[in-house]
Structure formats: C-alpha cells, structure tokens
Design a protein around this nucleic acid. Structure first.
Lengths: 299, 299
DNA sequence: ATTTTGTTTTTTATCTACAATAAACATTTT
DNA sequence: AAAATGTTTATTGTAGATAAAAAACAAAAT
C-alpha cells in the first residue's frame, strides 16, 4: 500500500469522541479547521459517521443521532502516524542497554523490524540526525554516536548560551506582552504542583517543557526554537528510561524555576542571569547524573 | 535507472589525472584508501583504466602505460553527485529575484525541473530545512521563508553566541596544540592576500571560511560545528549572487581578522572578546547590507 | 455576494524494485 | 602468517508507482 490513512483515522477518533447526541454540526470548512485537516478529510469523516449511523447528513443538515462508543473508534495502532511509530521504535532501540556508541545502524533491518519501507526510515534518520546522536558516512551506514557524556556536555553548553540569551530577551518584553500573563499562569501551576508534590512529581516534565518553551519563544529566533525542539524530544525519551530520584530532582527544579520566574518578573537583568545560571547549572548536573553508566571493561 | 555511478566516475577522474607514465601503482586497498572509496570501486577504476589501455594490469603488476588525456576523463556533468546537483539548482532558484518569501515549493515540479526523482528532492529538502530558510507544513507543501532581514538577524545572533564561545575556548587551548600552528599559517595567508589585494580579493571567502572553521573547531561542540556548516553553505551561495563592493568589504574583513588573530595569540580573554565582537559586528552589517532589497509594493 | 457543498485535480507520503557501492568472505601470493 | 587479489553478499541511493490528503474548481444555497 502507498500510504496509510492515519490522518483520517486519528481525526475521525478525535471528532467522534467530542460528538453529543442531537446537536447540529457546523459547516465542512469549519469542521476541517477545528480538526486541522483538509476539507476532503473532513468530508471523509462525515461520510463514515453517516455510514455508521452516528449522524444523519444531508447537505447542510448534520445531526448527531447517537453517541459513538469505543467500538466505533479506530484502534490506537491504526491512528499513529508512521513518523511517530518509527521515532518511538528507534528511540527505544538507542536507549536500550545493548545500544553501544559506535554501533552501525542498518536502514533495511530497522525498516523490517518496524514493518515499514526503507524510504520512511531513511527520512526519519535524516531528520533525526540534527539531534547529534547519529551520524552518516556517505554511501555507507549511519553510526550511533550515542547518549554519551560528550553529547550531554555539548548539549548543555549550547542550551546555556541559548537560554541566557532568551531569558535576557524575555526580561526586555514590554509589560503588556501576553508572555507575562503566560508566565504568571505557569508560576501558579508550579505552586500548585509543589503543594501536592508527592502525587504529582511525575507531571513535572511537561510543565518544565512548557516553561522553557515560553522563555525561548521570547528570543524569536528560529535556530533557538529548533534546538529546543530537539532537546525536548531527546529529554522526553531519555527521562522515560531514567527515573532515578525523580521526586527529589523535580522538587528541587520547581524551586529553581520559581526563583527564576521571580527574577524575570523583577525585570532586573543581573538577577535574571543569576537565577538562569543557577537553574541551568543544576539541570546540567541532573543530565550528567542520568547518563547510562559506562560499563568498566573487564578483560 | 536506480543510481548513477558518479562516485566511480568522479574517483576515476581524480585518479586518472594523477597518473604518471611508467610508474607502478600500489595495492587495491591502498588505492581505495587514497581515493576514499571502497575496494570494489577502486577495482572498477582499475578495470576501466586497463580497458582504455592506460595501465597494464595483471594481479599485483599495475603499470601506467600512458598519461590519460582530457578525452579519457568523464565530463563534469557526470561526476557531480545528485545531492550537489539538487543543492545548486535549488539555491539558484531561491536566490533568484522572483523567489518571494512565502512561496510554495513543489517537490514534483522541482524534481522534474532538475531531472531527478522526487525521493531525492524530498531528502534534500529535509536536510536543507535545518538552515531555517524553508519550512514544512505536514501533509502539505514546503514554504520558502526566504533570505529575509529576520533570517539574517537570527543567524547573526546565534553566530555571535557561538563564535564568542569558540573564541574563548580557542584562547584556552594549550600552547602545543596544533591549532596554534594552523592559526599562524592562516595569519600569514592573510598578510599575503593583503599584499596583493586587488588581484586576490575574490579568494577571501575561502580563507574566511577556513579561519572561522578553525576557531569553531576549538569548541569541540557538534552543534556549533553543524551550525557553522549551515552558515558556510548559505554564505557560499549568497555571496555568489551579491558581489557588491567585494574588494572593499573583504579588505576590511582581513584587517579585522588580523586584529582578532593577534588577540587570540595574546591569550588575553578580554582582548579576544573585544576583537571577536568587533569583527562579528561588522560581519553582521555586511550581511544585512547584502540582503535583496525589498520591492516597495505599488498598488 | 458570500458561504456551503459537490467534483476534479494536484501534491504528498510511502512502498517496491534495482543498480551502484560497500563490505564480507574465500583464495592466492609473498 | 600477513597482505593482496578474486568472488559473493549486503546495503545504500534513486526512480517510479500509487493511495491518501490537500487544494482547486464548479455549482448550489443562503
């Protein structure tokens, strides 16, 4: 087959679960915009909903006849985009214990294991290569550079340069900028999480990502934004595998964030730099501690 | 056809021009290593050289019978890798006057125009996207963001962060590091170029690239190195299209480089930072001045 | 006149196939 | 035994084909 209709299936599920019996549905372009798909796909969704007897559809009349059940939805395996499947599968492999730095990556083997074509795997690897974890020798194989100490240090260095820059820019935003309201909201979420830290410490990584993303957006720099995307993905998978001392680590980070936020709100550039450096320093330590321990070779 | 044998043809040309009559050639693995290709390709080259009567080849005996002529070589159109062809063709298009920011990029159209398959064009665009000049909307087209003022400013900001970092690292290299000798050699080349600036100002961009690359290597950071690769490619094409005041601009840059090099050699971090900032500031101005002038819309 | 629906065309995402190239294995030569 | 050559196998790079999705065009309804 040439292409899976995962866009359709995923959007169908998303739209179906939000339906309420006896309500009327909006126009096709509006549905398409709501779902973030083309009208063609929106129409395909309406067609299927109609065929399944979930809605009655006649030109502009679109009425919900019944609430869809779980049975009506597509199973989750069918709604994941190929890119996501490959990403998950690949990250699992390279974070597994037997994935040693220097290892070769075989496109065909990867494709077979994931059950996909080689083209998609190739495209994924090309995209993924900007994260600095793999490298290609032309006309030959990819090499896994791995989640090593060097990688962590290089990442941390760039991260610090970028975040110091972004934080300074943030401090210069005019006070009526929307970002200040967003920052205040995130500050409150930090307090809420801290109040219930024992239950909620696992949600911190999402909040952490949102906080840093907000800071980085102030720089309005595409290279900084792209780099933070890369960091976020790498961290996302990395911390799924390394959950040691998560509660303690996260609690400490929340306190640092709050200091950092207070400094930003003060508008004092020196205070911002100090708080930013303090947090980045400890983030660097966290990253280094979470590295896979190098097996000491015994001959 | 599935794949052009450009690796073979390019390596064949490279090897053929270096042949001298009556000399004996080394072993196959050695030839392969010299050319940076596999032994299979090296053997294909020997086979063809033998068929053309350029060498006599019998197992370990490989003697050059005659000097190859231009006639023996493959024409340059056949030795360019597909990636290079696509890159050149694409850069020409996006730097042309009619390429307005916001324009859509059509994979199939590009492929047809270049005379290649869509797969290669797609892969090129994915790789190229990290330079920040194009952007993709999933399931839809690529958009040209273009060589705009915003692009130049964002690029210059990151460049400054990275180069200040790298220059500081360079200053900390131990005195017996090879980089100091390389720096001295580059310094001398600057002096030589300056002595004959009217004839040689066009060669500056190559020297400029080598100089900054040397600085950046001191940081030993893959993200900085990758970013500089991107800058180098973008500048390479950009300045081919914008040659205004090249002599004057380059002469000024050479003087700045010499100050910068002197500061590095002094080992004084404050002096390094000052000289680095001064050069980067003027490089930023050069970049901004070289931007395509925005056409004032007339309604 | 603008929005909505109906229909057709264009473009992207992905698979498969195959030549070029690299890499591995086997044999011979020094 | 080590290195070179001879031979076979594995892997990459690229073209071409096709379904999904987007976009464009046309007709109808408010």
């Amino acid at each position: 087959m040439a292409r899976q209709n995962t866009v359709f299936k995923e959007a169908y599920n998303r739209y179906a679960v939000a339906l309420r019996t006896d309500t009327a549905l909006p126009s096709e372009p509006e549905i398409a915009a709501q779902l973030g798909v083309s009208r063609s796909t929106a129409r395909a969704i309406l067609t299927r909903l109609s065929e399944e007897g979930i809605i009655r559809w006649n030109k502009r009349q679109k009425t919900v006849l019944r609430q869809p059940t779980d049975h009506d939805l597509f199973p989750s395996e069918e709604t994941d985009s190929l890119h996501d499947i490959i990403e998950r599968s690949f990250m699992q492999r390279i974070l597994a214990d037997d994935a040693a730095p220097g290892m070769q990556i075989n496109e065909l083997e990867l494709a077979r294991e994931i059950g996909t074509g080689t083209t998609s795997v190739r495209e994924f690897l090309i995209r993924f290569s900007r994260f600095g974890l793999i490298e290609k020798r032309p006309n030959s194989h990819w090499t896994l550079k791995g989640f090593t100490r060097e990688f962590a240090l290089e990442l941390a260095d760039v991260r610090e340069m970028f975040e110091l820059h972004s934080a300074a820019e943030f401090g210069r935003l005019s006070r009526d900028n929307q970002s200040w309201a967003d920052l205040a909201a995130i500050r409150d979420e930090h307090h809420a999480m801290l109040a219930d830290i024992n239950q909620r410490f696992k949600d911190f990584s999402v909040l952490d990502e949102r906080f840093h993303l907000l800071i980085h957006r102030a720089s309005k720099n595409r290279f900084i934004a792209d780099f933070y995307d890369a960091i976020a993905i790498v961290f996302h998978y990395h911390y799924q595998w390394n959950k040691t001392a998560a509660r303690q680590r996260n609690e400490r980070a929340i306190h640092e964030h709050l200091d950092y936020i207070a400094a930003l709100e003060s508008g004092d550039q020196a205070a911002i730099e100090t708080a930013c450096r303090a947090h980045l320093h400890s983030a660097r330590q966290t990253l280094l501690q979470s590295l896979p321990q190098v097996a000491t070779e015994s001959a």
